[in-house]
Design a protein around this nucleic acid. Sequence first.
DNA 1: AAGTGGTCTAGACCACTAC
DNA 2: TAGTGGTCTAGACCACTTA
Lengths: 240, 240
Amino acid sequence: MAEFVYKQIIDDLKKKIFAGQFADMRLPDERSLSELYQVSRSSVKQALTKMEHAGIIFKKRGSGTFINPLYIKNESVFNYEGSNLGVTDNFHMNGQKPQTRVLGFEVIPPTEELQRDLFLEPHDFVYKIVRLRLFDDVPFMFETGYIPIKIVQNLNQTIIEGSIFNYLENAHNLAVTKSFMSIFAEPSQEQDRELLLLKENEPVGIMEGIFFLDNGTPLEFSHMRIHYQYLKFNTFVSVQ
Amino acid sequence: MAEFVYKQIIDDLKKKIFAGQFADMRLPDERSLSELYQVSRSSVKQALTKMEHAGIIFKKRGSGTFINPLYIKNESVFNYEGSNLGVTDNFHMNGQKPQTRVLGFEVIPPTEELQRDLFLEPHDFVYKIVRLRLFDDVPFMFETGYIPIKIVQNLNQTIIEGSIFNYLENAHNLAVTKSFMSIFAEPSQEQDRELLLLKENEPVGIMEGIFFLDNGTPLEFSHMRIHYQYLKFNTFVSVQ
DNA sequence: AAGTGGTCTAGACCACTAC
DNA sequence: TAGTGGTCTAGACCACTTA
């Protein structure tokens, strides 16, 4: 963590933002930061650009760099900022204990869709893992995930009852740092209502997509069905 | 459009991707592209990084740069890629004619929340605009937006019946190119069901957040309530 | 060993904002 | 006019993948 120059700048600026060090909602200019941290302006710019994409700040050309008021307003909202991408770390927990109930665990040949999405050959078998996630015995989502066995061969019940991503990082030094995700919503189906304790009129939020390792290898195709109260996705969008 | 080197590279690569010019799902390496376009590798990298954030490609360190299979799978899915951020341009239209029904149009003092989100003083009045959006007489969302009059003073019924963003770009040369958005879902309320013709059990998707001008000025706080079938949000997430 | 993307430097000039 | 972020160059060295 924080091995690179730009990551150290991000960590330091975030710490200062939370400490209220920029009361005027304004960061020092790029050239000052370059001097302060004794790095090139390019490295400062790289840090600030990533912070902008994380929804922490925004830049005003000709004026300066400012803290995003929505970031201060609702910190917990920025699920994906500053942690890894695993479920365990990213849904609002408020100190509650996360639990996992394994509903399915098998190895199957990849469908054509999976072959394309995960860059697989027909003979590249995949784990199919279905898990229900809970906080303090309250279920909030269930997930169907597909992971090629050529990337990891020794998954077992104990591992998938915890965080697969943490296991991969700790035991195999494989970090999950990128994903492409679609987010949408549907009326709940009977299985949703059973597993997530939803009423007839309450919907599910759906997130599905591909998780990538730090080196760009597609690791998992995941389909998550989420209790609507637990899905709040925050994002920065920019056009070219 | 395409005035800068990196934008020209984006446009050209996208054209080639759609033309199926990279059948192996792989782009040329950065140094080759640098030579091909006669620009520095940094400029190539800037283009590729933006394309990665747009969900078009992903990079594999040590291996190369590849086309995102989800991008090919469902083009229409990437609502925000390659156009501006206005509603008119971003919901799946399939050639249908977009319509707008104005439900409210007034000027009010900014709430404290709006003052913070749009960087306003208490005396900076805002337009409050409520609009229902339809395709071929089928309503798909309604939106409440707040725009400071200090940015634009001459909005009228005719303008807000069309695209405000297009008007700002054409008449005032103000381009909307960035936004911070929260996406979530709720059971539909009575007003939702009335306006969007939803059944009791069908939900609304909600997108709310801030739109920024190209220069970073916060332009609008917007709250959109969307028929669940029309909300599909696609995004790239990366951790530092 | 060769090839690829990642990080980083030390500048230059431009476009825009604020005064 | 001075200050700010945006674009761009021409390199350097590193980490990782592939063969």
